[in-house]
Amino acid sequence: MTTSTETSSTPSARERLLDAAEALIYAGGIHATGVDAIVRESGTARKSFYTHFESKDALVAAALERRDERWMNWFIEGTRNSGGTPRAQLLGMFDVLRKWFASEDFHGCAFLNASGEIADAEDPIRVVARGHKARLLSFIRELFDEFAAASGHDSRHAAKLSRQWLILIDGAIGVALVSGEPDAARDARAAAERLIGDEPESSRSPSRRAPSR
């Protein structure tokens, strides 16, 4: 039930706290962002924080969980729309990343950033970050299985290639963050093309074949 001052379209206090925590922590880091700043940015009362979260770490973990869901949905949709074949989609991942790198609000990978601030591997924040990378790896593996089936490549190498692909993705994110150069994604794509080899002639569309002489 909503009150006269809180309609169904108005974000709840919990949602506003999550929004504020994600934005501030992604831009400035976990340790540099205090609870007071999050509460102030959210426009809620400090009591709301303690009503919904037992600690700042619990709020951060919840914000990262929500970001994981949103980021993965965005990345999967962008990748699936980037090409008509599994190979094109695998390489299209780097085009999707480049658009992200070029955006004004790009501050690297929120999950790598968070992991760099939390020493305990079993801390809930690190657990969420690890789960995000596992989801990303699973999606990459799904595409490599499709790639193997479509191209006749040995499916036994899919797991190894998927892990290498994830390293290329995270490497590109790191280089783009430090250098400020979105083209880190293009460099990673070039390395990825060498990793999976040339596209079989039979799988190319007529428009991509060399013109006859």
Rank of each mutant, 00 (worst) to 15 (best):
S4L: 08
S4N: 01
S4G: 05
T10F: 12
P11N: 11
P11W: 14
A13P: 00
E15F: 03
R16G: 13
L17E: 05
A23K: 12
Y26W: 11
A27K: 13
R40G: 12
S42T: 09
A45G: 03
S48T: 04
F49E: 00
Y50P: 02
F53R: 09
F53W: 04
S55M: 05
A58Y: 06
A58H: 14
A63Q: 10
L64M: 10
R66A: 13
N73I: 01
F75E: 04
P86R: 00
A88D: 14
L91C: 05
L91R: 01
G92D: 12
F94Y: 08
L97K: 04
F106S: 02
C109S: 12
F111E: 10
N113S: 13
A114M: 04
E117I: 11
I125H: 02
V128E: 11
G131D: 03
A134N: 07
R135M: 05
L136H: 05
L136N: 10
R141G: 05
S151L: 03
H157G: 12
A159E: 15
L161P: 10
I169W: 09
I169Q: 06
I173G: 06
G174P: 00
S179Y: 03
S179I: 01
P182G: 04
R186H: 09
A188E: 03
R189P: 09
R189K: 14
A190Q: 14
E193S: 11
I196E: 06
S205H: 15
R208F: 10
R208N: 11
R208K: 06
R209M: 11
P211V: 09
R213V: 15
R213M: 12
